[in-house]
Design a protein around this nucleic acid. Structure first.
Lengths: 254, 254
DNA sequence: CGATATTTTGACCCGGCTCAACCCAAGTGG
DNA sequence: CCACTTGGGTTGAGCCGGGTCAAAATATCG
């Protein structure tokens, strides 16, 4: 947490907006909260922004705060002594970062895009959590969702080919992007890949070269179209799903 | 669930034992329950046994019961259309099988040893769950533990070599076995590997041939000793940890 | 004892890693 | 304005860890 903490006032807009108006109000940890409970959270929350690449928490470090992703993407990663790295979770807006009752983080959390978090201090959050079944219920739900996603990812990491890994990941992103705009994954203007090739490789258990080659492969096969390295369109979502090797639609958080 | 349901009375012993005397009383879902709450569970629980290889629930199937592993080991596995299989979790005694609120299972659950489960019907369990914060709290804890274990496994599946995978798995089993008898992982009489080579391969994202070769390799390197294919001793736990490639002790449930 | 799993071992091959070069866009400073 | 750097990204050549295929060796069990 040694980095710059200039709060970037202009693009954050209303730095301290009211919970009731929050974009993630109905998907985040506060989903089931009553107006009264929301007011309690409102009183103790604070926002914090991070630059791309900036570390949010380091593995083994004791964290004194936790909260929700409001904007941006956060990667949770584990590293072996010799530097091999595996990303074990990507956190999108409304996902909850930091674990109740576990003060020390078992992984790094790094901002992969500009990130804005809605945070609580650990002490305050746990006090409210104990008195608020609506929070606890939602926390359990979200944890179960993460567990499901983690297990889907275990199948991907353990058994899928490089091509299938890439296709699966792109299918998830395409579906996500389409869902946010109520479109089908095939027609929209495409979506932005918010990660570098390195971050993708870390997430999929591959190297950057293989990621690059497989993306090129999918492009040459006509399954995806690239405006540039980070902007992808999916002309045929079913073809992409097929390349992903899944039986049905690929599951994941959300 | 087409299989034999003969309850195997002799080796199950007291088929319906009192919760207070249960071997997993202080580790399972009921850990925090008061005597009164325990009595409620006691009234509605029932036991069921499964033979090795017997399917407990099939992926996509709607489950009408859920509960704790009392004896034996259960494997949770996912399968791709072409048959590639990945085990996403091993459930040992005290682990909870079946997810509250998710009626349909996203994976197969198969008994890999003789298994005895302490079960509740879904409807009854969820009713009690809603009225019993002690249960809900423990359920959240256990879910967080499973999530941690799943993420450790993602690192293993995505980034570890075959040798490291085997060493990691054996280290976990050795530590487990030692903990159950208050010994250090290096001195005990060794432990039994409760899985076939195929089940190990499914869990580690390998093939049975590679599993066999790497176990042989570790034996020839003097890191482990084999009485037979299923009985393993660890003369030097640190050497095993070293072969596992972890920085510290390999985490996992428990 | 044959019959059927499970495990081991061997020979070979290939998907994805390694190493290395190159491309391209965006700074940066003279 | 250009020379230089820097951080992504792509492409190529070669290699090797672990998969595949095949067969032998060992349990396990009627």
């Amino acid at each position: 947490m040694s980095g710059l903490q200039k709060m970037n006032l202009q693009d954050t807009g209303a730095l301290r907006e009211r919970c009731a108006d929050c974009t993630i109000r109905h998907r985040a940890i506060c989903t089931y909260c009553s107006p009264h409970e929301l007011a309690l959270l409102d009183a103790i929350k604070f926002y914090k922004t991070f630059e791309p690449g900036q570390e949010i928490v380091a593995a083994g470090e004791e964290t004194d705060f936790l909260g929700s992703v409001v904007d941006g993407v956060v990667a949770l990663s584990k590293t072996l002594i010799d530097g091999r790295r595996q990303t074990v979770g990507l956190m999108f807006p409304s996902d909850f970062v930091g674990r109740a009752k576990r003060p020390v983080a078992p992984y790094d959390a790094v901002a992969v895009t500009p990130v804005r978090l809605c945070l609580f201090t650990r002490a305050r959050f746990e006090r409210i959590l104990r008195q608020t079944p609506a929070l606890e219920k939602r926390l359990l739900e979200m944890t179960l969702d993460e567990l499901d996603a983690a297990r889907d990812w275990m199948l991907l990491l353990g058994r899928k080919t490089a091509r299938e890994k890439i296709a699966t990941f792109l299918a998830i992103l395409a579906r996500r992007a389409a869902a946010l705009e109520n479109e089908t994954p095939s027609d929209g203007p495409g979506f932005e890949l918010p990660l570098t090739r390195e971050a993708v490789a870390d997430y999929l258990g591959l190297t950057i070269e293989t990621v690059s080659r497989q993306i090129t492969g999918l492009r040459k096969a006509g399954v995806i179209e690239l405006a540039d390295a980070r902007n992808i369109r999916v002309p045929n979502y079913l073809a992409l799903l097929d390349a992903a090797g899944d039986d049905a639609d690929g599951g994941m958080i959300d």
